[in-house]
């Protein structure tokens, strides 16, 4: 543990923590754009600058570690001015289309501009236009909204180990590019969507969530991925009873906020038109729609018949490794206690 002072408050934090992480833990907000807990410090955006007593210049808090006796100020007039200038510069080269942008309401750039009180953009710089239309099924790339924080480059290289993007000149601007500017479908992209999850702006968004809902119109439910045994934690974003997106909290859960293509984009089956919406009973060789009472009564009568004629062990149950613990527990209880057979298995073997 190290003891330090932040905005006049004395605090103890674990050794080796960065000032930004320590501040976060203490509930002190420092603006940042190139930081993601999953990534190594980059020090690129300089929004997270703080003043340290005795230091000549402000330092990036996402990279600087807390040291014993350190005295930190996170919100001085000077810092405010520096941050405002940085954001104004970024906005001077940013399409002013927040009204229609997919990321509105969850955009870090927008939030920071608002929090810093940026009203007008003083630099009318030259705007870049690099909209890339990528045929990939999941990743929408609008590079004119890129602020070159390199988070996508870094997460794809250092966390996803795919190294799809590199920063390179396109015209007069540096932007993240794919090999030979080819579409993602022709790169070694695995469509994990990690780059979308880290992008602080609307430059990278999920294609299948576009135009489906604004953050203030949606609900978020924390749950567990239904696919493989890793058990990644994720947020189901829903609107009007339908899942419209899946997101994560960077750094949290067994998966630390990472997901694979199935977990991030594989939710479309939930509202698929082929979902079974009613029970069916086979009549004259064909499955016909039935009511719950009909179906359940039929099952109960037939199971009782089989049990009476051939004994409980003439009945077998196959439980599901996709169902919950509770459901598996209840089904084996049904088999053992209600029918009286140990003929119950799940597909662990398959």
């Amino acid at each position: 543990m190290v003891t330090f002072e932040i905005n006049g408050q004395v605090a103890n934090v674990e050794e080796g923590m960065t000032i930004l992480d320590a501040a976060k833990k203490l509930g002190i907000k420092i603006p940042h754009l190139c930081y993601d807990p999953r990534l190594k410090p980059y020090g690129g955006c300089r929004l997270c600058l703080v003043e340290i007593e005795g230091a000549r210049n402000p330092v990036p808090s996402c990279a600087a570690k807390v040291t014993e006796g350190m005295k930190v100020q996170t919100d001085t007039v000077t810092l405010h001015e520096i941050r405002k200038t940085i954001v104004e510069l970024l906005l001077s080269n940013h399409p002013q289309e927040c009204l229609t942008c997919e990321n509105t309401g969850q955009c870090a750039l927008q939030d920071i501009a608002y929090e810093l009180g940026v009203r007008e953009i003083s630099f009318e710089g030259e705007k870049h236009f690099h909209t890339v239309t990528d045929p990939s099924p999941f990743v929408e790339r609008e590079m004119d909204k890129c602020i070159v924080c390199a988070r996508c480059v870094r997460i794809c290289r250092d966390v996803q180990h795919c190294s799809v993007y590199t920063l390179a000149f396109r015209g007069f601007e540096i932007i993240p590019t794919t090999p030979y500017d080819k579409p993602l479908t022709e790169s070694n992209c695995v469509f994990c969507g990690q780059c979308i999850s880290t992008c602080p702006t609307g430059a990278l968004t999920s294609k299948i969530s576009r135009f489906k809902g604004r953050p203030w119109q949606t609900q978020s439910t924390t749950t567990t991925c239904p696919y493989c045994g890793v058990g990644c934690q994720l947020e189901l974003i829903t609107k009007d009873g339908e899942i419209i997106d899946i997101q994560t909290f960077p750094g949290e859960g067994v998966n630390k906020g990472n997901l694979c293509v199935k977990g991030r984009f594989g939710y479309g089956f939930v509202n698929h038109h082929e979902r079974l919406k009613t029970p069916y009973i086979r009549k004259e060789g064909e499955l016909k729609e039935a009511s719950w009472d009909e179906a359940l009564d039929y099952i109960a009568v037939r199971l009782k018949e089989v049990k009476k004629e051939s004994g409980p062990d003439a009945i077998g149950f196959l439980s599901s490794s996709k169902c919950t613990n509770e459901e598996n527990y209840l089904l084996q209880r049904l088999a053992r206690a209600a029918i009286g057979t140990n003929n119950i298995d799940n597909c662990a073997r398959l």
Partner: peptide
């Protein structure tokens, strides 16, 4: 484990 709740199904006695 291949599927999300193979472990749980076994723990719960679906065996």
């Amino acid at each position: 484990r291949g599927q999300n709740n193979v472990q749980g199904a076994c723990d719960m006695g679906a065996l």
